[in-house]
Design a protein around this nucleic acid. Structure first.
Lengths: 191, 191
DNA sequence: GTCTATATACCGATAGAC
DNA sequence: GTCTATCGGTATATAGAC
């Protein structure tokens, strides 16, 4: 609980997230992780209680960030289109701050044990809020009357895949990316 | 090589694809796979040579389908926007025919061994063709002058994630879905 | 806080009977 | 074509020395 051991623990978690992104949770062994940190596998257990504990800390913290961000967006009094743009920014910001962790959130959530139901609850609520926002936008004629499910699917999968793409564009400003992405996703690409 | 053993082999591969979609290649054991087929793990080896062999057959066959489809699209004499719509249909059709396999293609390609370089070559060529098509569309003023990389990223990640969504919409016609998705991706969502 | 040594379980794959 | 039995290797995790 002292600051030094917290730092070491966080170092383990961020190293694990990097390895999980490359090969997935199941294919990364505690020996791989220890080796990447320059220590032996047994030494990891002085800082974390299990491999599962690492995955849980990576995924749940990000999922809760998304929930908090979504709640603050839907409570604001912006237009529905404006709220969609804020969701784009939310994804860009969280992904830029934790690119590796986003890979685990997307690809390894099914390996959660005790926290699986909690994760699924947060995800379902997030998607329900997203869908309601699009439906409201359609009813106020801000958004074209297409299938709201297809609109949400298209936007959300693009935003969820940002972790694959952001590290390649380190020189790109988060605000610029949010802006460009909003234009493409909302205004379309054809002239 | 006789028809009956080919059928049994294909049964193993499609069962494996289903399990790989649920938990990922690394987390599925040969005992899991055998159990899902109602036999013992050792019996699998009468039909396939290794676990890796199963992954290879799932991924490479789909990757080659995409390559063939892309080549036939870029060689046609449609407009660039029309070609983009044909790419949408290509993804919808392949995903509808092999939803489980698409999960492995997206998430387990890094576990390929001998075939990894070949897979990456096919993927890079596919993305290069996609990007060139968008760049041509911009130069002919069919497509807005946004970043072609962002446009490709947005379209391609949505299309690559279709496997997550198509099984939930079994009642939906492939042609309808391609049409709706093309509208959302190309014309945007705002009025 | 890291080490060596090890417990216990499971992995992919093979041998050979039926 | 499937089985039982098993090999050699590796997984997560713990015990206890330093």
């Amino acid at each position: 609980m002292n600051p030094k051991s917290e730092t070491r623990k966080e170092e383990i978690i961020s190293t694990a997230a990097k390895l999980f992104k490359e090969k997935g949770y199941s294919a990364v062994t505690m020996r791989d992780l220890a080796s990447a940190m320059g220590i032996k596998a047994a030494s990891l257990y002085n800082h974390i209680s299990s491999k599962q504990d690492i995955l849980k800390k990576i995924i749940i913290s990000i999922a809760e960030e998304f929930t908090a961000g979504m709640n603050s967006i839907i409570e604001s009094d912006s237009s529905n289109i404006e709220k969609l743009k804020q969701i784009v920014s939310l994804h860009v910001d969280i992904t830029a701050n934790n690119t590796n962790g986003m890979a685990s959130l997307n690809n390894d959530w099914m390996h959660l044990e005790e926290q699986l139901d909690y994760y699924l609850q947060l995800r379902n609520e997030y998607e329900a809020n997203f869908l309601r926002l699009i439906q409201k936008g359609i009813s106020t004629s801000e958004i074209k009357d297409n299938s709201p499910e297809i609109i949400m699917f298209s936007m959300l999968t693009t935003l969820r895949s940002l972790y694959l793409w952001i590290p390649k564009k380190e020189d790109l400003d988060a605000k610029d990316l949010s802006q460009s992405l909003s234009v493409v996703l909302i205004e379309g690409i054809n002239k």
